[in-house]
C-alpha cells in the first residue's frame, strides 16, 4: 500500500473543485455514518442498502454536474472518478438507453440470479401486476426502469 501523502504535498485538485467540495464532504460524511451504523437488528440483505444508496446519489451528482449541467471541467470530472467520488462503471451504464436510472450494477447482473433475469426493480411500474411496493434485495431500489 502506497504511503498516504500529506495534503500539502499532494497535487492540488483541478480548478472548480472548491465549488463542489462541501457537497462531496457531506456525501462522504453520510457514507461514513452509514458504514458505522449498527446492523444488529437489520435483516442481513438490507445491511448494505444505505451504502448503495449514498454511492448512487454521489455518482449521480457527479454525473449530472458533468453531463447535464456542464458545471465541471473534464479534468475535474476525471479526477473525481479517479479519486473514487463516483462510480465510473455505473455512469457508463447511465449513458446507455434503457439504463438511464439504473440503481446499481448488481441489479443488471442476470447471471447472479436464479432465473437468469434482472432484478425486480428493473421491471417498469406499468408491467407490475398490481400496485405492490417492492424493494429490491440487492440495494433496496423501488424501481429504476427508465419509463417510471
Amino acid at each position: 500500500m502506497p504511503a498516504i501523502r500529506h495534503a500539502s504535498k499532494r497535487k492540488a485538485p483541478p480548478a472548480g473543485f472548491t465549488d463542489i467540495e462541501d457537497d462531496l464532504l457531506i456525501f462522504s460524511n453520510k457514507m461514513k455514518d452509514a458504514e458505522n451504523e449498527t446492523t444488529v437488528n437489520v435483516p442481513r440483505h438490507q445491511a448494505h442498502w444505505k451504502i448503495f444508496q449514498i454511492s448512487h446519489q454521489r455518482s449521480r451528482y457527479v454525473y449530472e454536474l458533468y453531463y447535464d449541467k456542464e458545471a465541471i471541467s473534464k479534468q475535474l470530472y476525471e479526477w473525481l472518478l479517479k479519486n473514487g467520488y463516483a462510480d465510473a462503471m455505473l455512469i457508463a451504464k447511465w449513458k446507455k438507453t434503457g439504463y438511464e436510472k439504473l440503481c446499481c450494477l448488481r441489479c443488471v447482473q442476470t447471471k447472479e440470479t436464479n432465473f437468469n433475469s434482472t432484478c425486480i426493480c428493473r421491471v417498469p411500474k406499468a408491467q407490475m401486476k398490481e400496485d405492490q411496493a417492492i424493494e429490491c434485495v440487492s440495494c433496496g431500489c423501488r424501481g429504476c426502469a427508465s419509463s417510471d
Binding site: D19, I20, D22, D23, Q57, R60, Y61, L65, A71
Partner: peptide
C-alpha cells in the same frame, strides 16, 4: 442556494 449542491440537500 449553491447551484452546485444536489437537489436532495
Amino acid at each position: 442556494v449553491n447551484p452546485y449542491s444536489p437537489w436532495e440537500k
